[in-house]
Nucleic acid binder design. Structure first.
Lengths: 220, 220, 220, 220
DNA sequence: GATGAATGAGTGTTCATTCAT
DNA sequence: TATGAATGAACACTCATTCAT
């Protein structure tokens, strides 16, 4: 709430509403524009227009188009980090925990296509903006830790095969969930399959879960 | 080699101020630029410069940036279509055939990162240029037919479970192969894992194969 | 005079980084370029150069070459509308009023060759930009009303024949005045007659007036 | 028929059809393009496409866009010269001859709007291409001679007033006829009057004739 | 006489960014 | 903090014209 300055008593139109709100508003608009069109395709003018403030403010708060893009990227990774932090499958048996993890991961991707698109964009730019993103370095350990916990429990319970690599497992899950959202449009065009149709999602979700479970059970 | 004017075997006055070569040269350069930077990020001037011909010729042969992009897209899909047509696993037992199919699919993605990038680009544009691409409509049937043939043989041999859906299986394989190339850069940044390192590839390849095999064997 | 920021009489914070002046400057330059070379022949670069501002500003204020052209057209018709509104021949007897009207019409055409040229340009484009011009629709009624008023008075005074059509009369006057300016150059080349020479103008003016008066007096 | 070269006996597709025909074909297409869009607005590519031959041939026969334009202009003036040469009103009484002359003049303009448009184009270019046009210099004497012949006869017959200037009379007739075609589109837009409607034409034709006759009868 | 390929200079337009107030 | 005006470099695209064959 800092930076607030309301209309004063004598009715002069109070400058400045709320710096944070302005920033957040810009960021929200930019997020959808960058996700939809990429760094090169998005237009500062267009972002400014859809904002409640102005183009000048974008530069005031973010400095440049690229820095705004980076802020959007950062926000997207902050989002998934928070979502993952909220999950607690410690009390579940390993198979149930893994199923829950896969389902939550898929749900997050389905609910946040802009995140998926931003990751695609970043890969197109060879992840050159990702390095500077706050907190990105420890994403590794967080992700691996949570995978490892489930693997360990599964092995202890005797339901998982030995020798499962946490990173491999993460990549497998991630591939299946990410692709379903990232390649939505080419899949629809080529296969006539609507990945946004709830029935299709339900079927695909179960197939993904089964394929993950199968690969941890199996003795290789 | 410019200014060439050949006469082909059957005697037709095969003119070309080397038109085909020019076209192909432009297309090649454009392919790498669009794959690297996307439709909005690529610059016609830059493409022209890297070409042996000129900007004017790009418009002479392709009409517009968008049509050039579409031609590149078309060429990419033609590439994978040809590669897939060359594969013949009919004589192999089902499990071996499926393994070979997965490995070939992965190899194609690894060998053609530009294809992967073009598909990403298309998904960012909601596949709006893909509809007009020649031969895209029957990609569906070709892909499904080859999957179905393997599934049928596996069921006949008694090594695959019943009820495997060809499209589901294709999506599973595609997800695992595509992601490994598409998300190469974010994976490297976040996990420090170099997806271009042969050792990493070998390990991931086997993991992918095993996970696919596990999901067809297993009864769910 | 750039960067000016005045406050006008009634206290409104009349801002303008001198926006109106810039707009007017562009419009003035554009008017002479379009009149001289037509829509296709005029060059935005050239207009920009003759302006105190830049090419970018032309697009800032007018959006496109065509819209700039339309703005010029609009301004031209606004000019003649104002000039016509300023005329008041109500107190003159009909013949004198008609003579005055013809002379003023001719004078306006002589004094505004750019208007004549813009009308020629529009006719070359089949008047496709004229429809959107503000106020063009009621030019009809204004012109006809003023002609009709003179006709009515002439008939009342018994000096005009019956059955004169206001639009016909307008077209007759307009033809004679317009042509003298519009076809200035071909007339000079073919007949060696300089339509800008005051003596030539004086003679032609009287001939035009006489021919108009003759056609209203005469019983046909 | 020079330059003709038909398909020879052994069926080889005979090169070269007819140089004159090719030239005429190009000229015809160019005439309609230049008339419609002006010198700057017309496109060599477009002209070539509508031609039975090619762009190269335009340069082969005419050298440049401007020279092609000049050839079109020349052809247009040759057309009206021929039309005027075909008229013979010597046997008619003066009034009838003048009426016939006016009507033929109007008819020619109505039947050849491209001629009118070319004259407009030339005036926009300040008649800079007209000087070089063959036969343009003696258009003056031809036109004046035919007007003078009618005037002389009218005076001899006692039906025309004295002191009529042949050039003035020509300009008056020309104004009225030319304007009706040249300003067709702005008239339609502003007054809703369709100058191509036969009924409208008939009425306007008679009004023009009457106004011309009135001005020669009148004693000034 | 005829064709398709090629070209350089230009032509309208847009972009991210900054200035003045 | 905020705004409208301004900018220069770049951008996609087009033109009349010529070359090689």
């Amino acid at each position: 709430m800092k930076g607030r300055c309301v209309t004063d008593a004598d009715g002069r139109p109070g400058r400045t509403h709320d710096a944070d709100a302005t920033r957040a508003d810009i960021l929200k608009v930019a997020a959808s524009e960058f996700a939809a069109k990429g760094l090169a395709g998005a237009r500062i003018d267009e972002i400014a227009e859809k904002t409640r403030s102005s183009k000048r403010m974008i530069y005031y708060y973010f400095g440049s188009k690229e820095e705004l893009y980076r802020a959007v990227l950062e926000q997207n990774y902050a989002g998934i980090r928070e979502a993952e932090a909220d999950r607690h499958f410690e009390d579940l048996p390993a198979l149930a925990a893994l199923r829950a993890h896969v389902e939550h991961t898929l749900d997050y991707h389905l609910a946040h296509p802009e995140f998926v698109r931003m990751v695609m964009n970043e890969n197109i730019h060879q992840a050159q903006h990702l390095g500077g993103v706050e907190g990105i370095r420890d994403r590794n350990s967080r992700v691996i830790a949570s995978m490892q916990a489930i693997i360990d429990k599964g092995v202890r319970e005797g339901v998982f095969r030995a020798g499962i690599d946490a990173l491999e497992l993460h990549l497998q899950i991630s591939s299946l969930c990410f692709y379903m959202v990232s390649n939505r449009y080419t899949i629809r065009t080529i296969f006539g399959l609507d990945m946004e149709d709830p029935a299709v999602i339900a079927q695909r979700r179960e197939a993904i879960v089964q394929s993950v479970l199968a690969s941890v059970r199996q003795a290789g």
